[in-house]
Design a protein around this nucleic acid. Structure first.
Lengths: 92, 92
DNA sequence: TTGTGACTTCCAGTCCGTC
DNA sequence: CGACGGACTGGAAGTCACA
């Protein structure tokens, strides 16, 4: 697996954790609220899991935020990637 | 499966398709560029697939947009959901 | 060019534990 | 309360034929 992929999962995980703590919830409460398993939520927060679209939507709505919020922090990483790809497009 | 879940996948799929056409790519080109199979991309666009975080990031970067763009259109649906959940929090 | 059915493979997600 | 490990099952993801 590429390094960037690990980063993406880690960034999303950290964001989930941050928002969860901000909302004053335990993993137990949040996991129950959005219908996923607590141990799996733990993996998501740790950045070792690769959650699906529906899981992320469930997390976002249970946290009371828009899905975009989960991706908020890797703007820089993402923009770098986009720049690289745009570059590649231009030069080929 | 709940109706709302189908909607979410459909909305994301439509957004991918819209952005792909806007970039003037065929499914074949986009799928190759982000390393997923064309027929699977077709299912994602149709809203029948439930893509993972890494797939969506690959799609977004290959399309040259931020991941948030993929969720752009279901602001209303999402906000309704959040409102419902916030309500539930308040009343329990 | 794209959509879909059918099939396989492997990981997302569940459930049990321990520390 | 949360991290982590392992074993298991269903579904994400990969592949091809065909319309």
């Amino acid at each position: 697996m590429k390094q960037s992929e690990i980063d993406f999962k880690k960034v999303v995980g950290k964001q989930v954790k941050k928002l969860r703590l901000k909302a004053g919830m335990t993993q137990d409460v949040l996991s129950e609220r959005c219908g996923i398993y607590r141990t799996y939520l733990s993996r998501v927060e740790a950045g070792s899991a690769n959650p699906t679209l529906l899981v992320m939507i469930a997390l976002a709505t249970s946290l009371g935020v828009h899905v975009c919020e989960l991706f908020h922090d890797f703007d820089d990483t993402a923009n770098d990637l986009i720049a690289t790809l745009t570059d590649r497009q231009r030069t080929q």
